[in-house]
Amino acid sequence: MNILLVLIPVSIILGGIGLCAALWTVRNGQYDDDAGTSARILLDDDDNHPDGPDGP
């Protein structure tokens, strides 16, 4: 049963990473325009740098 001592922390940490990633997507405003996001995947030249073509 010693394996549990490894597996339990691993499962909790993995869950924590998932949660942090989800929280980041929320704070980053990735749910602000769900219709637009699903459409943008079809664009070949979608600009991921809204700050300008040769942005920072």
Binding site: I17, C20, A21, W24, D32, N48
Partner: peptide, 21 residues
């Protein structure tokens, strides 16, 4: 400051792909 790797990596990713003005 963030305690987890994803949060620490976030600002970097944000700079690359900020979807907001």
């Amino acid at each position: 400051l963030s305690a987890c790797p994803a949060c620490a990596a976030a600002p970097m990713a944000e700079r690359i792909a900020s979807p907001r003005l």
